[in-house]
Simulated scan of single mutants.
Amino acid sequence: MNEITQIEIILVFSVCAWIGVVLLAWNKGASDYETGEMMARVIIIFTMIGFGIAWFF
Score class of each variant (00 low, 15 high):
38 M>I: 03
41 R>M: 10
24 L>I: 06
1 M>I: 14
13 F>D: 08
23 L>F: 07
28 K>R: 12
19 I>F: 06
57 F>G: 15
8 E>C: 02
34 E>S: 08
41 R>A: 14
7 I>L: 11
43 I>S: 03
44 I>F: 14
40 A>L: 15
20 G>T: 01
37 E>F: 08
54 A>S: 12
18 W>Y: 05
41 R>S: 11
37 E>T: 09
55 W>D: 10
32 D>W: 00
21 V>H: 05
22 V>E: 07
3 E>R: 03
16 C>P: 10
37 E>L: 09
12 V>F: 04
6 Q>L: 07
1 M>V: 14
56 F>S: 12
8 E>F: 02
38 M>D: 03
25 A>N: 08
42 V>A: 09
48 M>S: 15
2 N>G: 11
40 A>T: 15
1 M>N: 13
9 I>N: 11
15 V>M: 09
33 Y>N: 04
2 N>Y: 11
35 T>P: 00
34 E>T: 05
8 E>Q: 11
5 T>I: 10
47 T>R: 09
48 M>Q: 13
26 W>R: 12
44 I>P: 06
55 W>R: 13
16 C>S: 15
43 I>L: 07
19 I>L: 12
56 F>G: 11
5 T>G: 10
25 A>P: 00
44 I>W: 14
50 G>P: 12
15 V>E: 07
4 I>T: 07
25 A>G: 07
1 M>D: 13
29 G>A: 01
28 K>Y: 01
36 G>V: 00
14 S>V: 10
46 F>S: 14
46 F>C: 14
30 A>I: 02
22 V>D: 04
55 W>H: 12
3 E>M: 09
1 M>P: 13
21 V>P: 00
52 G>F: 13
